[in-house]
């Protein structure tokens, strides 16, 4: 079967827990990755809060789904980007974010952290390069 690999861009702009968008996005990302498509995740605006480390939902009776982001590397997701201006507007730096490791089982190539903070021109380039954009 011939396969066309498309570049998927998942655009995440909502904070976690207050609405269902972040959780739904993660579900769709995992499905896309399972179909061997090229997956790119971009977090901007309140979406950057999805990657905040130290989330503990024990007090609000909701599932803490933030550990799932750390497994994305195991689903061959290698491209995770965060808009720098969105972090700055919220008083955040990369130190406040989860680290997500990636490893290629066959070549043993590995990257310690695939979360990359990018400037506006790089964000534009990501959008230009994408075949499909899923907005959450």
């Amino acid at each position: 079967m011939s396969e066309t690999i498309k570049k998927f861009l998942y655009l995440n702009r909502k904070a976690p827990y207050g609405t269902i968008y972040a959780w739904e996005s993660l579900e769709v990302v995992l499905i896309g990755a399972a179909f061997d498509q090229e997956v790119n995740l971009l977090f901007m605006d309140d979406g950057v809060y999805q990657l905040a480390k130290g989330q503990d939902t024990s007090g609000i009776g909701m599932k803490n789904f933030s550990p799932t982001y750390r497994t994305l590397g195991d689903y061959e997701v290698k491209n995770i980007f965060v808009d720098r201006d969105s972090l700055a507007a919220r008083g955040l730096t990369q130190d406040d974010l989860l680290q997500i490791a990636w490893e290629d089982i066959e070549t043993e190539e590995s990257v310690e952290n695939i979360v990359t903070v990018v400037d506006a021109p790089a964000v534009r380039a990501l959008m230009d390069a994408a075949d499909v954009v899923f907005s959450f």
Partner: peptide, 11 residues
């Protein structure tokens, strides 16, 4: 509200 702050990862 403390539990909502903690859920979002902030002390």
């Amino acid at each position: 509200l403390g539990p909502d702050l903690k859920a979002r990862g902030f002390a």
